[in-house]
Lab assay of single mutants.
Amino acid sequence: GATAVSEWTEYKTADGKTYYYNNRTLESTFEKPQELK
């Protein structure tokens, strides 16, 4: 079976905060997504 690849990509803001962006739902969040835990 195919492994589900996380759609979340980790980015940093200009002031160094980490956030996560989902390229399928176009959602962004500062909290670590469930799929990455």
Rank of each mutant, 00 (worst) to 15 (best):
E31M: 09
T18S: 10
D15A: 07
T29N: 03
T18G: 02
W8L: 01
T13Q: 05
T25N: 02
T3D: 13
A2Q: 12
N23M: 08
T25M: 00
A14V: 11
N23H: 13
A2L: 14
D15K: 04
T29R: 06
L26D: 13
K17A: 07
K32A: 06
P33T: 01
K17L: 13
T18D: 04
S28D: 03
Y11P: 00
V5H: 12
T18Y: 08
L26M: 14
D15M: 04
Q34W: 12
T13M: 07
S28T: 15
Q34H: 11
Y11L: 15
N22R: 00
K12G: 03
G1P: 13
T9D: 05
Y19E: 04
T9K: 09
Y19R: 04
Y11W: 08
K32R: 10
K32D: 04
L26P: 02
R24W: 15
G1K: 04
W8Y: 02
K37P: 10
E10T: 10
L26H: 15
E10K: 04
Q34M: 10
P33W: 02
K32N: 05
W8K: 00
T9F: 10
T3G: 14
Y11Q: 09
K32L: 09
Y19F: 11
F30L: 08
G16K: 01
R24Y: 15
L26V: 02
A14G: 07
G16V: 00
Y20H: 01
Y20Q: 00
T25D: 03
T9M: 12
E31S: 08
T25H: 02
T18L: 10
Y11V: 11
G16T: 00
K32T: 08
T25Q: 01
N22Y: 01
T25Y: 02
K37E: 14
E27Y: 04
E7V: 07
E27I: 08
A14Y: 03
T3L: 13
E10Y: 04
K12Y: 09
E10W: 07
T13L: 06
S28G: 10
Q34L: 13
T25I: 01
K32H: 05
A4E: 12
T29W: 04
Y20W: 15
L26Q: 15
N23K: 09
Y11I: 12
E35D: 10
Y20G: 00
Y20T: 00
T18E: 04
R24L: 15
R24Q: 15
F30D: 07
G1E: 13
P33V: 03
K12S: 06
E35P: 08
K32W: 04
T3H: 12
E35R: 03
E7G: 05
E7A: 06
Q34Y: 11
E31Q: 10
T29L: 05
P33K: 01
P33D: 02
K17I: 14
A14W: 09
N23S: 10
L26S: 14
E35K: 04
A2M: 12
E10P: 04
S28H: 10
N23D: 10
Q34S: 14
A14M: 10
T25E: 03
K37M: 15
R24F: 15
R24P: 04
E10S: 06
F30A: 07
P33R: 01
G16S: 02
W8N: 00
L26N: 15
A14N: 09
V5M: 13
E10G: 01
A14I: 10
S28R: 09
A2N: 14
L26W: 08
K37T: 13
A2H: 13
K32S: 04
Y11H: 15
E35V: 08
T18R: 04
A2S: 12
S6K: 09
W8H: 00
G1Q: 13
L26C: 08
N22P: 01
S28M: 15
A14L: 10
T3W: 09
Y11E: 07
D15F: 05
S6L: 09
R24V: 15
Y21N: 02
F30N: 06
K17W: 06
Y20S: 00
E27M: 08
W8I: 01
Y21D: 03
W8P: 00
L36Q: 05
E7K: 03
T3M: 13
G16R: 01
K32E: 08
A4W: 11
A14K: 11
E31V: 12
S28Q: 11
T3S: 14
Y11F: 12
E27T: 07
Y19S: 04
E27N: 04
E7M: 06
P33E: 01
E35I: 07
Y19M: 08
E7P: 05
T13Y: 04
Y20K: 00
W8D: 00
A14E: 11
G1W: 15
A4G: 12
K12N: 06
G1L: 13
T9I: 12
T3N: 14
T3V: 14
V5E: 13
G1S: 13
N22K: 00
D15Q: 05
G16A: 01
K17T: 11
T25A: 01
P33A: 02
E35A: 14
Y21F: 15
V5A: 14
F30M: 07
Y19V: 11
P33C: 02
W8V: 01
A4V: 14
E27Q: 11
T9A: 10
W8F: 01
Y20A: 01
Y20L: 01
T29S: 08
F30H: 07
E27D: 04
E10D: 03
E35G: 11
T13P: 01
A4S: 14
T3R: 01
T13S: 07
T3K: 03
A2E: 13
T18A: 07
N23V: 08
R24H: 14
V5F: 12
S6W: 09
E7N: 05
Y19G: 05
V5R: 03
L26K: 15
A4R: 02
S28Y: 15
Y19H: 04
L36T: 05
K32M: 13
K12W: 07
A4F: 09
S28I: 15
Y19T: 04
A2R: 02
Y21M: 08
A2I: 13
K37L: 15
E7F: 06
K17F: 07
K32I: 09
T18N: 04
N23G: 05
S28W: 15
E31I: 14
T18F: 07
D15P: 00
E35Q: 08
L36A: 04
A14F: 05
E10C: 03
L36N: 07
T9Q: 11
T18I: 11
S6E: 11
V5Q: 12
R24I: 15
D15G: 07
G16C: 06
P33G: 02
R24M: 15
E31T: 11
L36H: 08
W8R: 00
L36I: 08
N22W: 01
N22S: 03
T3I: 12
S6I: 09
Q34P: 11
K37H: 12
K12P: 03
Y20V: 00
W8Q: 00
G1N: 14
N22E: 01
T9L: 09
E31N: 10
T25P: 02
N22T: 01
K12T: 12
T18P: 08
T29Q: 08
T18Q: 04
L26E: 15
E10V: 10
E27S: 05
Q34N: 13
K37D: 13
T9G: 07
S6R: 08
Y19W: 11
T25K: 01
E7Q: 06
E10F: 04
V5I: 12
S6T: 10
T29Y: 05
K37S: 14
Y20R: 00
Y19D: 01
K32V: 09
A4T: 12
N23C: 10
P33N: 02
K12F: 08
S6Y: 09
E35F: 06
D15V: 03
P33M: 01
K12A: 07
S6H: 11
S28L: 15
T29M: 06
G16I: 00
